[in-house]
Amino acid sequence: MSATLLALRGVETCYGNIIALRGVDIDVNEGEIVALIGANGAGKSTLMMTISGDPRARRGSITFAGRDITKTPTHEIARLGIAQSPEGRRIFARMSVLENLQMGAAVCGSGHFVEDVERMFAIFPRLKERAQQRGGTLSGGEQQMLAIARALMSRPRLLMLDEPSLGLAPLIVKLIFDVIADLNKTQGLTVFLVEQNAHHALRLAHRAYVLVNGAVAMQGAGRELLERPEIRAAYLEGGQ
């Protein structure tokens, strides 16, 4: 087993008086794809943002690469090598695609900017066609590609993706999941993925956690969870 890259222990997060996370323990190992699935409002996005320090965990600890980041400011967490493509993509609408990518590279300086942009354009050729266009004019799928590419521009040690499949056509979802799998396989990129689309996520992930009402209800290998009847009932067949 490879080294633990990210470890959450007893993490509790609140919004005012509302408790969003109740003592979450999660490990993400180097080179793994870990998925976090759960229903709307289970606290998935809150968990992701808590790792980035916004909002802050009220209790518990978050360790990244052996360093306690529970109280580290958000921008410094990013500089340590955690890149996030957050809920809602948050593309800078009044900046061009290229400028959005430049913002992604803000952390690591401009040393290998040109090379990295070429790499992103190779992964997502659509972005190349749109390079000078404003972020706000892109379609949903293109914005998602841009959000992932922007996160990758910082050459992160841990890539966190919040619902990369949300609202996208099946073909684009497949493209994006293929890209994630490929980056993991060829470059050993560690990925922590939040998904409502449990089917896709569990097939992609090495391991997965199920979050219910702000607490981890189940965990296991992705494929194994996929077979469990309670998961099938709650997250896979429930809507059908």
């Binding site: 890149a83 913002m103 992604g104 803000a106």
Partner: peptide, 20 residues
């Protein structure tokens, strides 16, 4: 660029390592 990013979305700028 950091300024324009903060103007549009401070939270996202911080996630990208910008000291807001």
């Amino acid at each position: 660029r950091a300024q324009r990013a903060c103007e549009q979305d401070r939270k996202m700028a911080a996630l990208l390592g910008v000291d807001v």
